[in-house]
Amino acid sequence: MKIKENIENKELIVNSSTDNLSEVRTFVQAMWNSYGYDEKKGRSVVISVDEACTNIIKHAYHFDTNGIIKIKVKSKKNKFIVKITDTGSHFDPNQIPEPNIPERQKSKKGGGLGIYLMKKLMDEVKYSNKGKKNELILVKYLN
């Protein structure tokens, strides 16, 4: 369940559970649509935020559903910007190497694709940690 949704502030706060991914997607798509942007283009932002939150749930909170994920959206200067913060373990997606899909398949392993997909779909992926806080910024250029 969502903890807090503040449409005016363009902010959603949820617990770190995969159960909330659909809530996250609905929120991001609604925010995108509220700017009047082309709905279809927004779908790549929606999936990227889904991937980012899935990674936080797995790698920052290690499936502990008590963690908090905060998603804040803004749009300026032809950019749509999503800031995602958590207070779990530090996890920099930019440090993860590109997956070798045929090799993973041979060893019957799934996974490892989310970050790669997120980077393909977004124009910028920036990670920083500020004290206990991890901050991930995803940017989609509008032109």
Binding site: D50, K106, Y116
Partner: peptide, 17 residues
């Protein structure tokens, strides 16, 4: 209607078998 990488991961894990 929608697939994320978690869905693709399922096929990767089973196709070899």
């Amino acid at each position: 209607n929608y697939i994320s990488s978690a869905g693709l991961g399922v096929f990767m894990a089973y196709v070899e078998t």
